Simulated scan of single mutants.
Amino acid sequence: MADTTPTEALGPPLSGAAEVPDVPRQIVARLSGADRAFRALLRGGGLAVFAITGLIGGFLLYRAWDTFRVAGWKFFTTSTWLLGSNHFGIASVLPNGLVIALTALVVAVPCALTAALFISEYAPAVLKRPLVALIDLMAAIPSIVYALWGVFFLQPRILGFSRWLSDHLGGVFPPFKVVGGDMQILFQASPFVAGLIISLMVIPIITSICREVFSQAPSGEREGAYALGASRWGMIRTVVLPYGRGGMIGAIMLGFGRAMGETIVVALFISPVYVFNWHVLHTGGLSIPGLIALWYSESTPTMISALMAAGLVLFVLTLIVNAVAGVIITRSRSGAQTAD
């Protein structure tokens, strides 16, 4: 027979008993020697990354100090590069490098995301492995091969398309506007074509990372979306893409860093011009890595210091981009939308 005695019959709690706070008990496990060694190895590896990064930054700052002492803030506001008269700066090469990198991302990001979604969600098992191998093979091709392909194959065949963009879209989108008639001179060696070549190097990086992220979307939520009547694209839009948002942002930022640091294509392909060229279809331009590659072999100690200063600016810019990407990834962690 069930006990029906009311709780009041048990009487009030003892007056002398202290109230114990309702907090979880901490369980402390004794670490073994292998655990301590593994933890020390991980901690040492993490500290080594910070130490190496700090040493690189310190070395660049030490070698660039003479340039900053002579040029001061003019180093960031001067466009020309005349070291003999101490009239030099990165006011043109830095934004030109950003234009080239952004052009590469505009082309690479849609292609990479589409390829990653097709491989992870649509491709049959027979095609999936060859496609993954093909993407990895694209990442293994040296930069000089892409540069030579762009110079001798892509550029002669894309001049007409560049002229078409200028004629039909230049009035709507001013960066596409190029005034002049000689197509061979105005549209050759432009930041647009350089961005197209660099995009081929960025696509494998973004595709590989996004494919891994998309494939890790929880299968339970995939099946739940299908059970609620979603189509395959509906499942991708509501489950896979929100789950992989952080990974996509990280992949795009990594591709941006790869595009900003590309040297051979810019040095071999683009005609060096020390003026900010925001008309992406017009010939001429340069980036900081291309500047360093072009001037390093014939540099005096003063020129080396100036190139180190330019490299330091690129180094700091990369750190800032990575820090911003880390904040964005933390706020949109993969799986955060699906774990609630």
Rank of each mutant, 00 (worst) to 15 (best):
M138V: 01
L169H: 03
F315V: 00
F173L: 10
I249M: 13
D66H: 01
W295K: 14
V28G: 06
F161I: 06
A189L: 00
S32I: 01
A306P: 00
F269W: 07
G180H: 02
M260N: 10
A18S: 15
I320Q: 00
W81L: 05
F214P: 03
A230G: 10
G220S: 15
P301E: 05
I135K: 08
G257F: 08
R129W: 13
I270R: 02
P175W: 09
G84N: 15
P12M: 04
R333L: 12
M183S: 12
L314Q: 13
A251R: 03
L186M: 07
P289S: 03
T318Y: 11
A325T: 09
A34H: 12
Q155L: 05
A116K: 06
E121N: 03
A147L: 02
Y122N: 04
V172G: 05
A48V: 07
F276T: 10
Y62T: 14
N277W: 03
R245N: 11
V275W: 12
F38S: 14
F187T: 06
L61A: 15
L55A: 15
A323T: 12
D136N: 14
M201D: 05
A336V: 11
M201I: 00
G54F: 00
V145G: 03
I270G: 03
S297G: 09
R63K: 14
A91G: 07
G255W: 08
L307Q: 04
F76A: 01
P204F: 04
I27A: 15
E212S: 15
S208A: 12
I304Q: 11
G326K: 04
P12R: 12
P174C: 03
A40W: 07
G220H: 11
A101I: 12
D167Y: 05
P142F: 07
